[in-house]
Simulated scan of single mutants.
Amino acid sequence: MLNDTYDVINIHGYGDYAADITCLLKKLRLLGDTALILTIHGLYGLKSGYLASDFSVPFPSMRQRIRSFFHHFLYDYTLGKLETNTFDKVIIQSEDDRRYLSKNGLKEDRIVKIPIAINEIFFKHTSTVPRSDRYYILYAGRIDPFKGLDVLAKAIKELKSIGISLKCIIAGKDCGYGSQLRFLLNKLDIVDQVEVRDYISQENLLELYSHAVVTVLPSLSEGFSLALVESIATGTPFIATPVGANPELVALTNAGILVPVGEPKILAETILHVIKDEQLWSNMSTNGQKSVSNFSYEKVVEKHYQVYSELTK
């Protein structure tokens, strides 16, 4: 980096070593007039610090609450704050990110909101599987404590208790929560209904979305969920919590419904409502596919180009 001259350096990830090192090099005046951009893919560290200090919010465990709380003060108010204020522009994916960064002292004129683009394979998916051929609930994403998978499991149990035995597929990389999740599924006696899958290729993921009746994302904290956009690209409506960019996606696409964080009974009722109301399902399915062009590579690249052009005038 020091041996070459660049017009722009774009670093990805709040709290990553690359961002910290770039910040320090800039402060040491070793990067000259190079414009710096930080692209943030979710403020999990910063957000979890605020969540940990708010005892009205459900949290995975007291140990994680304490760790996140101290991380928040030790990093976010020192190097994290210095990092975000050193970059010329900070690209975010949601108004939620904007709010947390503003709390941490970042000026509004440094913030630019640009969504993430989804894989082109989802735009080649032109046909929609009819509602009658969809037979399971889908969660697609990391298997970790912040994704609210315990709430989803309890919602499946709620449905089972009233005689609704819907299959559920949880697909994604295990980030340290898989064993706890499987223990909970056993405890709730829903192992026969919930299938946990590891890594899924893009082609197989497309197939999973296409045959799901609804995608569920009951997260405690979120950035910009690619899973929800991928879901609506296949005509599958979603149910999500009002965190991260989820409220904005609901408003923009009219393809999803928001439910409170940590409320399995309400989640179960909403799942039942979506799958039983065929007109509602059809409307959300159609709305989602009409709006998905907002997340194409072409549109997202154009917005990035505008930021680069502004900084290199």
Results as ranks from 00 to 15, higher is better:
Y100N: 11
T39F: 00
L25N: 09
H72R: 03
F238L: 02
D76F: 00
K47E: 15
I118Y: 01
S291D: 11
N294R: 00
D198A: 13
H41M: 07
N283K: 14
I121C: 03
S61D: 11
D192N: 14
L28V: 07
K26V: 06
L226C: 10
R29M: 09
H72T: 05
K187P: 11
S102I: 12
Y50N: 02
P260C: 04
L188K: 09
I156C: 07
S94N: 05
K154P: 04
A171N: 04
V300F: 00
P242Q: 01
K160N: 05
G223I: 10
P247H: 03
K47A: 11
L220M: 09
P145D: 01
A255Q: 08
F73T: 12
L31M: 11
D7T: 08
S219H: 05
L220Q: 06
T234N: 11
F224Y: 14
G178W: 00
Y14P: 02
G141V: 04
D97N: 12
L208P: 01
L149I: 10
N283I: 15
V301N: 09
C23V: 03
S231Y: 08
L226A: 08
I190N: 04
E222P: 12
E269A: 12
K154H: 08
S56Y: 00
T253M: 10
F70I: 15
E278V: 11
Y136Q: 04
K265N: 06
I66K: 11
P218Y: 02
L188Q: 10
G45N: 14
Y209A: 06
D174C: 07
V307T: 11
E83L: 07
W281C: 04
Y199L: 02
K124L: 12
T128L: 10
K107C: 11
V214L: 06
Y14S: 03
L217N: 10
Q180G: 09
F122P: 06
H71V: 12
T126M: 08
I118F: 00
G42F: 02
Y136L: 03
Y199K: 08
V243S: 03
L30M: 14
L82V: 15
F122N: 04
L159K: 01
D20G: 02
Y199A: 01
M1N: 07
N186R: 13
L184H: 07
A52N: 02
F123G: 08
I162C: 09
D150G: 15
T241L: 06
C168T: 15
T5Y: 03
S231I: 05
V250E: 14
I66G: 02
D97R: 03
A117R: 04
R134K: 15
S61V: 12
L252M: 13
P242R: 00
G42V: 06
S61H: 05
G288I: 04
L272E: 13
V229I: 15
S127Q: 13
D198L: 07
T270F: 03
L272G: 02
D16E: 09
L166Y: 05
L181M: 05
I200V: 15
E230C: 06
G244E: 05
S282Q: 14
S53I: 10
Q180N: 15
K265T: 13
L206R: 12
G80M: 07
I66T: 10
L25E: 13
